[in-house]
Design a protein around this nucleic acid. Structure first.
Lengths: 184, 184
DNA sequence: GTCAGCTCTGACCGATCGGTCAGCTACGGT
DNA sequence: ACCGTAGCTGACCGATCGGTCAGAGCTGAC
């Protein structure tokens, strides 16, 4: 039965991603994942060092992408930074919407996780860019509202075309930030 | 030693609220609460029927308040509904910010909880009011962004005066919704 | 044919979980 | 002085958790 070298590995990751997003990391047991992936619990631990290793492998890509975006944003200023931050963040959030759900669901513990150690710095850079490098409460609160609003909206099951969703998220975020735009 | 009739009960609730908000419901054990409240685990279960009963008692007030707000909003229309929804929701979120954190942290499971059974209806009413009774994707996405943005911002530890925070949350939400206002 | 090695599994382990129970202590009513 | 009862606790319970281990089953190299 164990034919393709590592099809099971991918299947475990897919199942874990779905279950973590739906029930949270702590709310999902290795048994749950094994049932979903149609293998034994011991098989999970043959492919992965432990439950935590599965999470790490799932969250590494979005963490690296967010970190890279943070560094790029740090080089921009003013209006350029705001627009790049909004479009970049919305794109990332949509691409990794299940991972976003996992991270936001257990934020405090996740931030203590090694693989997500880069997040505070990246989020600071993102927030600073969204705030247009301004430090007034208005800009800081608005930036935080965008970060949360986009994440929650993407994680929720709003029925809308991805393209429409993306467009409206960007417009909505720019409105929140009070950023002037050619459109309404 | 057990002098005041029920000081321990309050202390258990306070400790549980703090710990649930910080580590999540599933991430907090009865032992953790007992240590924080400086009593035995068995004492917790003398005062409360179980871990779930503690959560129920903590979440009942915000659930009832949200439900009541939803019904009030259902009676309003257009611009009135939008403004009432924004100020009402921001007020509720700030008053119950720790409870909001608990609910948002484990949303899927929380929505299955009996005491929060009223939430979907209330949130639908809130979203409809925020969207100004309009059904276009733009209004629906913006409403969802406000719901998430306010909740996450209030749950995060943004250092700002409560009055300022409240003011900026309301203004930010109205900007997100594209709702015209006399101020910037 | 046979042997080495990768994949996978059932049985099992200690730790921790939420919850139960018998009983101790101290106070208020009589 | 006695007792009922409310408040509280240590000891204990079964279930479930993440994780270990010896070995079965299959495959490709020789």
């Amino acid at each position: 039965m164990p034919r393709p070298p590592s099809a099971m590995r991918r299947q475990i990751l897919d199942s874990a991603l779905r279950l973590f997003a739906e029930h949270g990391f702590k709310g999902t047991s290795l048994h749950d994942i094994a049932v979903e992936a149609r293998c034994s619990k011991a098989s999970l631990l043959y492919h992965f060092a432990g439950k935590d290793a599965i999470l790490t492998e799932l969250l590494t890509p979005p963490a690296e992408a967010l970190s890279a975006m943070g560094e790029e944003l740090a080089a921009l200023t003013g209006g350029q930074a705001v627009e790049a931050a909004v479009t970049g963040y919305v794109g990332l959030a949509m691409r990794f919407h299940l991972e976003v759900k996992i991270i936001f669901a257990e934020l405090p513990d996740m931030l203590g996780h090694p693989v997500l150690a880069v997040i505070p710095r990246a989020v600071d850079q993102l927030a600073a860019a969204l705030a247009g490098r301004r430090d007034e409460p208005r800009a800081r609160v608005a930036a935080q509202m965008v970060i949360g609003g986009v994440a929650v909206t993407v994680a929720a099951d709003v029925d809308a075309e991805p393209a429409t969703m993306r467009d409206e998220l960007v417009r909505g975020a720019l409105r929140t930030l009070g950023h002037p735009t050619g459109l309404s």
